[in-house]
Design a protein around this nucleic acid. Sequence first.
DNA 1: TGGAATGATGTTTTT
DNA 2: CATCATTCCA
Length: 797
Amino acid sequence: MKQLEELNDSQRIAAEHLDGPLMVIAGAGSGKTRVLTYRIANLIAKGVAPFSILALTFTNKAAKEMKLRIGNLVGEEHARNLWMGTFHSVFARILRVESQRINFPSNFTIYDTQDSRSVIKDVVKSLALDDKVYKPNTIHGRISMAKNNLIGPTAYAQNSEALAEDHQAGRPRTGDIYAAYQARLFRSGAMDFDDLLYKMNTLLRDFPDLLAKYQHKFRYLLVDEYQDTNFSQYLIIKQLAEGHHNVCVVGDDAQSIYSFRGADISNILNFKKDYPESVIYKLEQNYRSTKVIVAAANSVIGKNQDQIQKTVWTDNGEGEKVLVHRALTDKDEGYFVADSIFDVHHNKQAAYSDFAILYRTNSQSRAFEEQLRKRNLPFRIFGGLSFFQRKEVKDLLAYYRLTANSADDESLKRIVNYPARGIGKTTIDRVAAAAGTRDISLWDVLTDEEMRPDGIAKGAWGKLQDFVSMIRSFSASMAKQNAFDLGQHIAMHTGLLGTLHRDKTPEGVARYENVQELLAGIKSFSSEPVEDDPEAVKTLVDYLIDVALLTDVEQEDDDPNKVGLMTVHSAKGLEFPYVFVVGMEEELFPSSMANGTREELEEERRLFYVALTRAKKKATLSYAVSRFRFGKFVQNDPSRFIEEIDEQYVDLPVATSGGGASGWGARRPAGGERWSGGGAKGYYKGGGKSGAVAGTGSRAGAGGAAAARKAAEKAIGGLGGATPKLKKVARPAVVTETATGEAGGIAPGVEVVHERFGKGKVLKIEGDAPHLKATVFFPTAGQKQLLLQYAKLKVLA
DNA sequence: TGGAATGATGTTTTT
DNA sequence: CATCATTCCA
């Protein structure tokens, strides 16, 4: 294939490798996607049938783009037949075909995290356990970890390590919950995300003919981001590759950032052991970033102990130093970033899409949204509360899911009384109880008069029957009607659309629009032709298969020229000329959840490495001295990662001193100890901060701090001056009362503006310092009682 | 039964 | 501060 000439030597050698196991260790920006793309194209050019190539990527979007590029190289008609997608989507597709083997319907429902938690919660309740002890979140994490390591409920009950851990944690019945949870999923014809991988393993383990079939089918395997595979994924690959050993994995240990979901670096480290005959190539030349960015990133990642030795270098220009900006508050940080983007956009003719704002946690996006909006800079938030997780969207999808799979209890419970049809909680509880004792689905109870639980009155039962026949009428046309026609019909016929339309509050209008957007999405889905059969109709079932594993990042946007806002995690694999890594503070990045052990800290460091290496031209880091978080102002030191960058590549902010009562100023508390001794975890010490109340229990801080605090309290009318709640936290938060002045002028007779209710007049103020309550009259919304603590009231001049 | 009001609780990252 | 769950009232 002559296009191989477009590659550099090491890229080309890797791409030309045909048979036998191959591992490519690819530094950031070294063109690993290119290698994958060209290698696949080359295989096809050499006569390998596209349908015998399986390529697993990290996101569906990556797969889509790669397919497109391969299509450009060897023709779209070939690329189309490739097996390409995420582990989850590819194996979900196979599971749909083979599901009878494990007694699942082919249209099984895929439960998302919310669904899973809800089931767990229910199970915990039915086992008469305390959900304060058995928190759905925690339990789900345990179950997920077990599944990722292919430990089923039975094995779990015999796993001494797991049992010991659960016992230690005071949750000895975790295994029982796991077993009951699986039983419930089975009963509902549902699989959770982890099941998609787990059950694929089950198929390959229990059905030799299937193993042989897929080993034979997939003659060439390619895995992108191999460093982020977990055991479950690893084993699928290993088994499929058994016969022919034509497996090519690509990855970068320095970018392994998913250990929280079971990713195991040892998969990449042990590749040579699994395939002794394997060839390993390293791609070390970076084509993406400036010399400064590459060097800065290298200096940071060098602090990690666990890594495969490699030297990433670049021929690109020197570039600007990494700029570090110190903002006073998160709001200022937002202002700074928006301002910088505005500036560069105008002065350097950069497109909006040339900018990305990367943060550690989704909740940080808000400050940037606001500031970007103010400057009229178009932006798009990736991830976060995904479109598909919105209540109204999930509601409509629940109707679709139930229509497709009537055993889906979660969906049934969700919508049986939405919109309201007079079916109350008591009624549903009784139905659920009856289903539980017989181990059948709720639907099975509803569709059998014999099953009618005692205590359900004729009236309620009648309403349930109406519901059943409505769903049945939908199901009847599911197989033949196209997705949009039926989808629209359901949205209207159930009354869901009407209910939302009647709600004229801003939120209600937004919800209505979201549902319309969902329908629009279904419409465009319906209008695409079915791959091999242009005559066939795209049904709602087809849509559901697609939509369950779609993420926000993958949703197309009508106008791609927008500033991107996303977490560092979701930025993996992407690149932007200008990157802002924000919230560079201790406790946030590195996260307070993850600096207990060296391993965890190293993962945070790799995450930072990923963030930095997204930048092509310029990287800017910013931190806020004080951040509004959790309803309070919290103060943290600049992230240690800033210091870890070799200083010759950084442009640090000028250290100003002074700065009001609090005396922030020093960029960092003078040298000193970051960690107090003591426990294994080590608690962070407040360092030299005055004006801050450090620690959970401390009442007033010492000396000057007390005075400063008093002054601050006075300035804000005593608001927020409450003694911090005594609450057990792993690491004491540092709380600062800043004088926002917002409460100052609020008094009876004053005109104020509320975010939601608009303009209003304060009638009276009552209550004590922390819980001041204002009675305000709003012409538009009537008289309201508002807690000044929470309500954002602005005084009208 | 439905809805509003009040209270508890929670925040890492994602398929 | 936001979301959720529970509670309380019509």
